[in-house]
Design a protein around this nucleic acid. Structure first.
Length: 598
RNA sequence: GCCACCAUAGCUCAGUUGGCAGAGCGACCGCUUCGUAAGUGGUAGGUCCAGGGUUCGACCCCCUGUGGUGGCUCCA
């Protein structure tokens, strides 16, 4: 296979255009607010941003003005000139720009680059100037602003952003903008955003009548309609059956747990802020269950003394958990306060890690495949040098090695992310790309050498001695709520037949066909097909339109001809119109589509 | 939690220098019985998110709160 040479984004003309546009925007903002303090302004995926400390909040009108001024600057043809200089000279230039001074000090120490990211080598300090505006910058940039098409530039939004991403530091105003190589590309990008909006699961969830939120119930607590619950049921049943087939066993561990257990497991220290407040009953303090691991481990313990012959033991559970997410973090179904995890904990010996990982991997691959997620990558999250990570080098090394070799053995490509691990061990996350190219973290497998010891778990080994089992945490779809949100957007609401809450709708042409429609519906129901009869006194066209908008896979029109011949006139939601077929033929086709999970 | 913006009928939205609240779709009740994406007439439907303030008068202006959106931070 021929190797295609792919240009790195950071070296591309598009990147230069975006980065240069960020500088031009900063110039326009400084012209408007001469006392503004400028922070950082990198190019990012699909555009760029720049952070400012401004005397007042920006309005949408400000953005229009800044965008207009940017076009003028671009058209005027300013050139970008690079200059290398010493830290002291740089400090002189930016003497009234405290954020730049802080960045220069980072560069001086050789630990951070001009965007505040850690670097290996001590960087050269350089500035880029266009016209009267000079910025601390490594580049690269376009030679002249004439390399940017003024009609391919657009400011997108204003947002708050903490300086250096640290919530204890000042909140700056971030302007997001986008630049493309041509106005056509910009138009395509805006079109993609529109398409994404049409697929937004919050919008589709309402239109298709799948779920709601209620102020009376509370934020982040979704309520599912009969259709929405059907989806949940089907999704969970599918994974449950598959897990059973793969040798996982299901357990149930309730919703409340004594707070003390989380102190023992170590979760309390790390996550008490994201647990719902305690429920106090005389001398006992309870918490809503925010994770299953301690419960599953307690169950393992209560089931008595275990022999190595019993391992691996695989406890799976569809458990509804409650997490006290900050209100600003809640978002539709993808970030909620009550979530149903398809969780599993595998208790095994160190030697079994590889096999268990492979098993989990096989299961995950099959599930992602069924849901038409074919494009995904794996992130291996490792501990960082500082932070929440439990201190035990030997065990971390053992865990990291086990995970790496398991993934290598599985022939799986992965990339590593330092500092992203859970506090108890490294993890492998599956990040899938949906049809719009957006990435979602779905499945996860985590090795845990820490918690079983903390909770005093043990098994008797071949040597007759007590050993601490290794714990594997594993989730396939993550949570039912989040996965459903992603699925709605992935399918744009047109679920495959096996998942569709309503699989077929019968459309009688006139009232005299109602009886036949009901007969057909009864026969379909008998075969387990989820079917509705549209009995309204509407024209067939209106019924078809409504069924299309509800994205129902099969529309079955019945009139005089069909009634006479025991047929149904099939129309697919794709617009495909096979016409009149025998009822039995349709049933066979539908059952086959459902069976194949197409 | 922080920054900005938003909240009007079931849904999508309009509205007024501060002077009796509007449309389309949907719902309901009729008429229509129709062959592959909206037949037709009528009726009902509102604490203009909540609480306070300014005012002769507040859906509109101010404050506080609640909820949502876009980000930031966080995500066992």
């Amino acid at each position: 296979m021929a190797e295609t040479k792919q240009e790195k984004y950071e070296e591309s003309m598009l990147y230069k255009r975006r980065h240069s546009a960020a500088h031009i925007m900063a110039q326009a903002v400084l012209e408007k607010f001469p006392t503004a303090k400028i922070a950082i302004g990198p190019a990012i995926e699909d555009g760029y941003y720049y952070d400012f400390d401004l005397p007042r909040p920006l309005t949408p009108e400000d953005l229009d003005g800044i965008e207009k001024r940017m076009r003028e600057i671009i058209k005027s043809g300013v050139t970008f000139e690079r200059k290398v200089l010493s830290a002291d000279d740089a400090k002189k230039i930016f003497h009234d720009q405290p954020y730049k001074i802080e960045l220069i000090e980072g560069l001086e120490k050789g630990t951070l680059d001009e965007n505040g990211n850690p670097v290996e080598e001590k960087p050269v300090i350089s500035t880029y100037s266009q016209g009267i505006f000079t910025d601390l910058c490594r580049g690269p940039h376009v030679d002249s602003s004439k390399d940017i098409n003024p009609e391919a530039v657009k400011l997108m939004s204003v947002a708050g952003a903490y300086w250096r991403g640290d919530e204890k530091r000042p909140m700056l105003q971030r302007i997001y903008g986008t630049v493309w190589n041509s106005p056509k590309e910009l138009e395509d990008y805006l079109w993609r955003l529109e398409e994404a909006k049409k697929r937004d699961h919050r919008k589709l969830g309402k239109e298709l009548g799948l779920f709601h939120f209620s102020d009376d119930v509370g934020p982040g607590l979704p309520l599912f309609t009969p259709k929405g619950e059907m989806l949940r049921y089907l999704m969970e049943k599918y994974v449950r059956d598959l897990q059973t087939k793969y040798g996982y066993e299901h357990v149930w561990t309730g919703h409340l747990v004594k707070e003390d257990l989380y102190k023992k497991s170590g979760h309390y220290d790390n996550y008490k802020d994201s647990m719902f407040p305690p429920m106090v009953d005389e001398n006992i303090v309870f918490r809503m269950k925010p994770m299953n691991c301690p419960s599953h481990m307690s169950l393992f313990k209560e089931m008595g003394l275990h022999s190595y012959r019993e391992l691996p033991m695989r406890f799976a559970e569809f458990a509804t958990l409650y997490r006290y997410e900050k209100t600003g973090e809640l978002s539709g179904l993808t970030r909620v306060r009550s979530l149903t995890q398809d969780d599993c904990h595998v208790f095994c010996t160190p030697e079994q890690i590889g096999d268990e990982f492979t098993l989990a991997l096989k299961l995950i691959r099959e599930v992602l495949d069924t849901y038409h997620f074919t494009d995904y990558r794996v992130r291996l999250s490792l501990r960082g040098k500082t932070g929440k990570f439990v201190k035990d080098d030997e065990k971390w090394n053992l865990a990291e090695t086990a995970l790496r070799s398991s993934m290598d053995a599985a022939g799986l490509e992965y990339f590593e992310a330092e500092g992203e691990a859970a506090f108890y061990g490294p993890k492998a996350d599956f990040i899938a790309r949906d049809v719009l190219g957006r990435e979602w973290q779905l499945s996860t497998i985590q090795v845990d050498f820490i918690q079983p010891g903390r909770l005093g778990l043990s098994y008797i080994g071949e040597d007759g001695l007590e050993h601490t089992p290794v714990l594997l945490h594993r989730a396939v779809t993550g949570s039912t709520e989040r996965f459903l949100g992603v699925l709605i957007e992935h399918y744009a609401g047109a679920f495959p037949v096996w998942l569709s809450p309503i699989q077929a709708v019968l459309i009688p042409i006139a009232d005299r066909h109602l009886e036949y429609a009901a007969e057909v519906a009864a026969k379909l129901k008998e075969k387990g097909i989820r079917v509705n009869v549209d009995e309204r006194s509407e024209r067939m066209n209106a019924k078809i339109r409504d069924a299309q908008n509800q994205k129902i896979p099969y529309m079955l029109v019945v009139g005089d001809k069909e009634m006479e011949n025991g047929q149904v006139a099939l129309r697919m939601r794709s617009g495909e119109n096979p016409g009149a077929i025998d009822l039995e033929t349709f049933i066979q086709q539908a059952l086959s589509d459902i069976e194949k999970k197409n």
